[in-house]
Design a binder for these strands. Structure first.
Length: 984
RNA sequence: GCUGAAGUGGUGGAAUUGGUAGACACGUUGGACUUAAAAUCCAAUGGCCAUUAUGGCCGUGCGGGUUCAAGUCCCGCCUUCAGUACCA
């Protein structure tokens, strides 16, 4: 009987589907195990061989865990909202739902043909209203919550309201907007409902705010930071500009510290954790407030300073200024304060100037009339430069003196205030105290503009560059912290600043709140309507709020998002239904009665909304009453193994952790991390093929002939090339008309192509479709080969030529069970060698799977098959358990042979064979005998031989004597069971 | 610049606590079968030198070091890939 893989694979895929073999129950006597893949966006291009890599790995693990007696949850679904379907709709008018449905069909067919053990009964699609109902629900929960820094968790907004009613907001320590002002209970109770709502919005975990966003004009939408690569949009490569817009935001910054600390508790790769740490960007230091010296006072003083009058007088003057600040109310003498953040408060006595970002709000207010023209010009020039320009041009030092001075908090000396574009408005407070001796950028700036560089480090030379090594420093020239190290000095400075009321210890995070609005059609609608301009949530019981139909998927002519095209997109609060826009209350304009109909939100949610809780929804995907039942979450708890690409490091994987922590705070999930272990699969690259066209001619030179020739490499489709890099010239000629009459210069009778490893992409003609591989070699070969290519996490090139290796392995495996006369497996007792091969294989494969070293177990299978073939093994006692070992990797052939051995149940229910060490016990060892560390020959010796005897036997051996040539060895090292080394 | 990962034959890669470097494949070469091809099977295959079978030298990015013994450990470099970037 022949190994007919196409027939076998179709048969078992059908069997698994019909018998729901991989359906997981939400309770079981077995221990649970949850294996998750990052669900795909169903793109129109379908899958290429790179896509299933992670799915194959997770499938092997899931199948292995089933053999090991676990109740395994291994679901799959689609992240089906997204831009490509919308772009297609814009071009063709086809509804994105239809495009998406078609694409999903293709994906499903392609996934099915690879033989995954997914529980498809739990499929979710983010664009399905039954699913996004719960995305909207989470949004409402976030809206109804605030972050209490005292309890360090999210709490109900209703509790916050009752605190405000009783105590105002002064006792509340919340993660909230900076612009919140203090109010008392009386104040609160006196506010209008609109005023109250406006204040509450500054506390909610999702809030509306005017934010500076990344606006992509070409796409007509806002992009998140992680959707921008090198200053242009990730999709399409369009330019991105900064723009102020009112947008929904997520207060992820409230969770910065917990997101950072949580990394310690999860088994994710170091590089991924490091990416998240950098993204969160925690810096510990102090905030320091510098008082700006009012202009007229300063002018007076600079005159007196130049006259070298006494310090006392200056101090008096400053004292006077200070008092003035407290009492002065007239605009002229308003005392400005500049708050800075520093990680090095210990260097404060080295601060010889300050720098503000050009966009800093104080710039226009403190600039002196003499400097105004120059400052304005600089501010304008900076604003014109794009972020990209500024990034590319790091080396140029630029800045302008504002003419204003700030007062050093301790020395009370005036220090110059400059503006410079090396200070970023978006980080910290947009202002720095510049310490040129301790920071290279400040140093360069000071050198460039001839500003003082006082040295506050003991015994350190700063004539060439700044000294930033804080651990090996003793502070000098710094008043009360002289002689202290970094740690002590920092503590003391913070203490003194607090005494002055001019600073405190502070921790700063780089992590920004996440903009949550997108100006797109194909995303989740917000469950939000606007009453008097204030956002209101639709009651949960009326969800989902489904996407409206629109005629056009582009932004409206007035610049509103695509949902602005919908004519039926208003919310009637009486019927709790979506109604026509015509019915919207016009009270504000015409004084008419409020009829309870209000406009709905026009933005939709971003791509990551739907993927931030999907892993929990899989636990109970059909539940209509709750996002998931408590029974389901208590049973499955969290993802045990998550496999996916590292490109989601700071997007999906951070947002999901944030939502999970929020769900934890609400008491809905038992773990505040959703995935215990995470593995990033590496990318599979393409092996591109090149032909070489002679410049200016329609003539191609074979690879070996191009040296010194003026040729242009052109991508040829990889399907035209065989395993020996020879081009199918006819196929190539027929590929495109311009090659029809091309001339080919051959070497050794063939045309050889050049090869190079590149990312798989259509434009490089190196994309390999799994459909073709499955048809030609079978899914089991595809699965084995993907694993055999190399370590899971590594980037590695695909070369279809190599698949014949694993394919012929499967044929050899088949031949262990079948020959021309049919099944040849017998009940004959296994030999010692048979058992040794089997148990060696069990041990290795089990270890490999536990270590996710799938490539090496494929080798192990090959070795086992080669050995058993050589041993002419037909023993069922060996060949039956062997199938269970192979089954996670090549499930179809395993099922087929398993049933041929007489089993009626799927092999997936079989127990994993148990390793017995007794079969591997050896009585002798072939010792490598080395001289000065170099192996020269081998010697078979009994393993129970003593060290002394081994030495004696080896030394007596003729080849040892031949090696030594009469020399006396200095030393003989004998490691029993391992090696003998003779030194001399 | 910083952070992380990695550099091993013609290629993908293996070597689990320092102990026989190159497992397993691809490719290549030679052979068997065949009219031929495919498929299958057998043999060789890190480089250099020598050759009568026995052998010798070099070899895991580079330079040092530790050790009886280093791909593996330590120090200093180089290169590649990825992330991040004037983060105060």
């Amino acid at each position: 009987m022949k190994y007919n893989f196409n027939e076998i694979e179709a048969k078992w895929q059908k069997y698994w589907a019909e018998n729901q073999t991989f359906k997981a129950e939400n309770n079981s006597d077995k221990p649970k195990y949850y294996v998750l893949d990052m669900f795909p966006y169903p793109s129109g291009a379908g899958l290429h061989v790179g896509h299933p890599l992670g799915y194959i790995a997770s499938d092997i693990y899931a199948r292995y865990k089933r053999h090991k007696g676990f109740n395994v949850l291994h679901p799959q679904g689609y992240d089906s909202f997204g831009l490509p379907a919308e772009q297609y709709a814009i071009q063709t008018g086809q509804h994105p739902a239809i495009t998406t449905e078609d694409n999903i069909k293709t994906y499903r067919r392609q996934l099915d043909q690879i033989g995954f053990s997914f529980d498809w009964s739990r499929e979710v699609r983010t664009s399905d209203p039954k699913y996004y109902k719960w995305t909207q629900w989470v949004f409402i929960q976030l809206f109804n919550s605030w972050y209490n820094n005292d309890s360090d968790k999210a709490e109900a907004i209703s509790e916050l309201i009752s605190i405000f009613e009783k105590e105002g907001n002064v006792t509340v320590d919340a993660a909230c907007d900076d612009t919140v002002e203090a109010f008392t209970a009386e104040n609160w109770n006196g506010f209008t409902p609109e005023e109250q709502q406006e204040i509450l919005l500054k506390y909610r975990l999702t809030y509306l705010a005017e934010t500076e966003v990344n606006w992509c004009p070409a796409l007509g939408t806002v992009l998140a930071n992680d959707e921008i690569v090198n200053g242009v949009s990730e999709r399409g490569g369009h330019p991105v500009v900064r723009k102020k817009m009112t947008q929904w935001s997520m207060r992820i910054s409230a969770y910065a510290e917990r997101l950072l600390q949580g990394l310690e508790t999860i088994d994710w790769t170091d590089s991924l954790k490091e990416s998240q740490r950098n993204w969160i960007g925690k810096s510990v230091g102090a905030s320091v407030t510098f008082n700006v010296i009012p202009t007229e006072r300063h002018t007076e003083r600079s005159r007196s300073a130049s006259d070298e009058e006494s310090n006392d007088e200056m101090l008096n003057q400053v004292q006077h200024d200070k008092e003035n600040c407290h009492s002065a109310l007239d605009a002229e003498s308003t005392c400005h304060k500049i708050e800075v953040f520093t990680t090095r408060p210990d260097t404060i006595f080295g601060a010889s100037f300050m720098t503000l970002a050009p966009e800093h709000e104080l710039v226009s207010q403190i600039t002196t009339p003499e400097q105004k023209a120059e400052v304005d010009a600089y501010v304008e020039a900076t604003a014109k430069r794009s972020e990209r320009d500024r990034m590319a041009d790091v080396k140029t030092i630029s800045g302008v003196f504002t003419g204003a001075y700030a007062e050093h908090p301790f020395t009370k000396e005036p220090i110059q205030i400059w503006i410079g574009d090396y200070v970023l408005a978006s980080y910290g407070t947009g202002a720095v105290m510049a310490v040129p001796c301790g920071d290279q950028r400040d140093y360069d700036f000071a050198k460039h503009f001839g500003i003082d560089i006082p040295n506050i480090f003991e015994g350190v030379d700063i004539s060439e560059e700044a000294f930033a090594d804080k651990d090996n420093t003793i502070i000098a020239n710094s008043d009360f912290i002289n002689g202290m190290n970094y740690k002590k000095a920092t503590k003391r400075v913070i203490y003194e600043l607090e005494q002055l009321g001019q600073g405190e210890g502070k921790t700063n995070y780089r992590l920004r709140d996440a903009v949550f609005s997108r100006q797109r059609y194909w995303g989740e609608p917000f469950p939000v309507y606007y009453k008097n301009g204030m956002p209101q949530m639709i009651d949960v019981e009326h969800l989902p709020l489904e996407l409206p139909e629109v005629e056009k998927y582009l932004p409206t002519e007035t610049g509103e998002p695509p949902l602005g095209n919908a004519t039926k997109w208003a919310w009637c609060t009486k019927t709790n239904t979506v109604v026509s826009n015509d019915l919207v209350t016009l009270s504000a304009v015409e004084g008419s009665q409020d009829n309870g109909v209000y406009p709905l939100e026009l933005n939709t949610m971003p791509g990551w909304a739907g993927s931030s809780q999907y892993f929990n929804r899989y636990m109970d995907p059909q539940n209509d009453e709750a996002i998931f039942s408590q029974e389901a979450i208590n049973y499955w708890q969290q993802v045990d193994l998550y496999i996916g690409g590292s490109e989601h490091a700071t997007g999906h994987l951070l947002y999901s952790r944030f939502w999970q922590k929020f769900m934890f705070d609400l008491g809905l999930v038992g773990h505040d991390e959703f995935a215990k272990k995470l593995i990033n699969q590496g990318m599979i690259l393409g092996t591109s093929a090149f032909v070489y066209r002679v410049e200016g001619e329609n003539k191609f030179l074979s690879k070996g002939l191009i040296d010194g020739q003026n040729v242009q490499p052109i991508h040829a489709d990889v399907s035209f090339v065989n395993s020996s890099d020879e081009l199918d010239i006819e196929a190539f000629k027929n590929w495109r008309p311009e090659f029809k009459d091309a001339e080919f210069v051959l070497e050794d009778g063939v045309y050889k192509v050049g090869r190079d490893v590149e990312k798989m992409s259509k434009s490089k003609y190196n994309v390999v479709n799994p459909d073709n591989i499955c048809a030609q070699y079978g899914a089991d070969s595809l699965r084995l080969y993907e694993m055999f290519l190399g370590p899971l996490e590594q980037y590695k090139p695909w070369n279809t030529a190599g698949i014949t290796g694993v394919h012929s392995f499967l044929k050899k495996l088949w031949k262990l069970y079948f020959d021309d006369n049919g099944l040849k497996v017998t009940d004959v007792a296994p030999t010692k060698d048979n058992l040794k091969t089997l148990h060696k294989t069990i041990k290795k494969v089990e270890e490999d799977i536990e270590n996710f070293s799938f490539n090496t177990s494929v080798s192990t299978f090959m070795i086992a098959t080669n050995e058993l073939t050589a041993q002419k093994c037909t023993s069922k006692e060996i060949l039956e358990p062997l199938l269970v070992l192979v089954s996670p990797y090549a499930p179809h052939i395993a099922e087929e042979l398993w049933s041929a051995l007489g089993h009626t149940e799927s092999i997936s229910t079989a127990d994993f064979p148990i390793f017995e060490a007794s079969h591997l016990v050896e009585s002798s060892k072939e010792y490598p005998i080395s001289f000065n560390g170099k192996m020269r020959f081998k010697l078979e010796l009994p393993l129970d031989m003593s060290k002394e005897e081994i030495e004696k036997t080896v030394m007596a051996h003729e080849r040892t004597q031949a090696q030594l040539q009469g020399r006396e060895p200095k030393k003989v090292i004998v490691v029993p069971g391992k090696i003998v080394n003779i030194v001399g």
